[in-house]
Computed example of a mutant assay.
Amino acid sequence: MTERTGTFVVTHAEPDSAVVRDVQTAQVHTLASNPDLEVHDVLEATVAPEPPMEVTWEVIEVDDQRSIELVDSDLEPTTYEKELAADAEIGDLVQEERAGTGEIHVFRVPGDEVAAAADDVLEDEETIARAARLEAVRVEVRSAADEGVLSVRYLPD
């Protein structure tokens, strides 16, 4: 096996080890040590298998390390986000690039399922991976149960 350079999300962290997932390939690597990583950290790094068995990996070089903040906001989706959802059917996803960096995802959800949908987004490992790919450092979830709208904002620093 050879070393790999990419963007990794920390999915599990203990004092002596960690597990990272490549956000492009979804390949998982168990690290033989934990170089001060926490769950939801994002690494731009190079990892390599540890000899002799090459079962565990080690971090060779870190170009960048950041955390992704997950926020269940008290705010409602913006007027623009509600307009994006207005033409969508229940269950549809509308993706929109933000001015500058990041994305906004707007979902139409039955009103009584909005809170559960928000929780699902905040607990989904793929939310962190998507934020890492978009170079976001904050994911903000806004909801309006009375209108059946959920927005997920992937925001830069």
Rank of each mutant, 00 (worst) to 15 (best):
A85K: 07
L93W: 04
S73T: 05
R108G: 05
R108H: 07
E81K: 07
P77N: 09
T79D: 15
P77T: 08
A99H: 09
D87H: 12
D72M: 09
L70H: 06
D112G: 04
T78W: 02
G100M: 01
I90H: 09
E97G: 01
E81F: 02
D74Y: 07
A88N: 05
I104K: 01
I104T: 15
A99V: 13
G91A: 06
E76D: 13
L75F: 09
A86Q: 12
D92Q: 14
G111R: 08
R98T: 12
E76R: 14
E81I: 04
V109T: 12
L70R: 09
E89L: 13
D74K: 11
K82F: 00
Y80C: 02
A88V: 00
T79F: 10
P110H: 06
G100H: 03
A88R: 07
T78R: 03
F107I: 07
D87A: 14
E76Q: 11
S73G: 02
V94E: 08
E113A: 14
T78G: 07
V106Q: 05
Q95K: 14
A85L: 02
D112W: 02
E89Y: 02
T78L: 09
E69G: 03
T78S: 15
G102A: 05
V106D: 02
E96W: 02
L70A: 07
F107S: 08
L93K: 11
V71P: 07
D92I: 05
S67C: 04
E81T: 04
G100A: 01
E83A: 11
E89T: 11
I104E: 08
F107G: 01
D87L: 09
Q95E: 15
R98P: 05
V71F: 04
L84R: 02
E96H: 13
T79M: 08
D72L: 11
E97K: 08
E103C: 03
V71K: 09
P77C: 07
V71S: 04
E89N: 12
V109D: 05
T101C: 03
K82R: 15
E69Q: 15
E97D: 14
S73C: 06
G100Q: 01
R108W: 00
T78V: 07
A85D: 06
H105F: 11
S73R: 06
L93R: 13
H105R: 15
P110T: 10
T101L: 12
H105V: 09
L75Y: 08
D112K: 10
E76H: 06
K82Y: 00
L93E: 15
G102E: 01
G102C: 05
T79H: 11
D87G: 15
